[in-house]
Design a protein around this nucleic acid. Sequence first.
DNA 1: CTCTGGATAGAAAGCGCTTGCTATCGAGCC
DNA 2: GGCTCGATAGCAAGCGCTTTCTATCCAGAG
Lengths: 349, 349
Amino acid sequence: MTVTLADVAARAQVSPATVSRVLNGNYPVAAATRERVLKAVDELDYVLNGPASSLAAATSDLVGVLVNDIADPFFGIMASAVQAEIVGPGGRAGGERLAVVCNTGGLPERELTYLTLLQRQRAAAVVLTGGAVENEEHIAAVAAKLRRLTEAGTRVVLCGRPPVPDTDTVALTFDNRGGARQLTEHLLSLGHRRIGYVAGPEERTTTRHRLEGHREALAGAGGPTPDDLVVHGPYDRASGYTATRELLGRAPDLTALVAANDTVALGACAALREAGLRIPEDVSVAGFDDLPFSVDAVPALTTVRLPLSEAAARAGRIAMDREAAPEGGVDEVRGELMVRGSTGVPREA
Amino acid sequence: MTVTLADVAARAQVSPATVSRVLNGNYPVAAATRERVLKAVDELDYVLNGPASSLAAATSDLVGVLVNDIADPFFGIMASAVQAEIVGPGGRAGGERLAVVCNTGGLPERELTYLTLLQRQRAAAVVLTGGAVENEEHIAAVAAKLRRLTEAGTRVVLCGRPPVPDTDTVALTFDNRGGARQLTEHLLSLGHRRIGYVAGPEERTTTRHRLEGHREALAGAGGPTPDDLVVHGPYDRASGYTATRELLGRAPDLTALVAANDTVALGACAALREAGLRIPEDVSVAGFDDLPFSVDAVPALTTVRLPLSEAAARAGRIAMDREAAPEGGVDEVRGELMVRGSTGVPREA
DNA sequence: CTCTGGATAGAAAGCGCTTGCTATCGAGCC
DNA sequence: GGCTCGATAGCAAGCGCTTTCTATCCAGAG
């Protein structure tokens, strides 16, 4: 039925071993023989049997990219960059690898399921993107899985995720704390004092770090962060919308709003507008990430730009061993404050 | 080194065959034995060897999802929906499958490369999303590949892509033409006559169909489509921006602008605003797809909503054989015109 | 108490490929 | 001219799992 290596070998009048070597190109084969084999491959329209090959060679050409939410451009951009590096610059350069992105939905179980699935497939490398869930049990489970993966020869790279102690993994983290601090400091410097904060989901490293940065900035300005000015919710537009309405109810006097990310900020803007408040005249709004649409918001969103594409590309290269891992296995990538139209001087400043 | 089925068998005091049967659950195994095996699996932390299993069973649990640009929410949303259906409603329900999304970048070669890679992995199913490149050679090559895939037992489903004749594939198409027609008719009914059109890349089915719908509407209103009011470009913000500047230069009198999709529309808005034109007072703008951010644009974008998530979920279910394929293997999904603030009556109407 | 048959478990033959080791063939060298 | 060595090609042993075919065991039937 299906064409096998043996068929090709028969047609090319060589042994299966030779065909295998031509296809893998890691053993000298006379030019004439190679030609003959390639011709046979072509004529028979032969396609290597991946599983058989992986089994025999004990490695596969699968590379996994785990993301929390593929529908979110934040992850889409990173996934795209990683994948581009993995397939190879030329589109198919080098040993064709299958870069597969796995959507965990931010669920701990799914993350583990995918990790197991990738382990099962003997993946060549795995890139984990985005914030991690901060749940002791889950962290331990993931660490164990990653240890097992690296032991089996799978290279593991984390991007935008805190390093996992006691593992052979490489981590490229984002300076969420520092970025958030800068952002809030910017607001403080404009004169804002009552600043609402729409945080991401609890138990997420990204959420915590950004919130900590915010608190640091406020603490630096002498004030604590009133708990009632912080509301948690998922990283989506709806959360920004509802949280803002909630905050507006709790503190009608706030003059600025910091959102967990740009998407949330957009929802916040919608809620403010609906409440008849102008941006930034009545309330300033700031986001995080600087996703492509942020510059097009009206007014353009003040935010912290994270070099998602660059960082992810680097992660991909490290995973492919085409770039050295950073000293110590960890490197922090900084964000850049982008001041735009959505933030301004408060009403009565 | 690594734990194998045999190790588990030894530990559980059973034969490898029994372990395999417990793991696959397709053969009666006494409860007590099953327990013993499962315990051994757990104690040894055994993970099935995917390649070996796929080789022996001649099938794999990989399902491929091809997208043109994973960084674009249009595809991210579809990928997410397909993946959710494939993994199973419960997160890990059923025979754990690995849904992998492959980013083709809209490049024909890459599309074929991924298809080959999936064929090589003996994928259980493949879902192709988004418009296809309209290049005869490429179409034939893809058709051949798909034929080969279906022959090998891989189920192939197209989502938002025209059916491929003479193949055993199922296609869920979007009514791009009809949606575009409605959109332009809406503009015409408002009184617009000079309408610019920022089209997608040439040689793409989506581009062509939307443009045809636009032309149909204009023809219905008695006028042809002046060629100089149509500009092609990629499906991104930058394209919308530059194309709009170009159009503004060519026809300063235009009162409305239709973009290939929402992202492009956003770029168009930016260019208009920069030119000092108000939306919709001076120029009306319309997009396509109704991506999440469109409702948050200011003014909110008039567009055609495509049920991306629903359609993709359905495609996923069909691929998993959990839903019957539509009659004839093809079904057209309609869009819905969403009239919002970005379109209005033209200046001198 | 022996016989029949359903329910389980095991033996073993691959699945298609990779790769260490061996065999072959000339060419260059003493 | 016989010998050594580099360059190629083939042999054959797996890689770890699935599955067909058989063997075994025990309950109920006669």
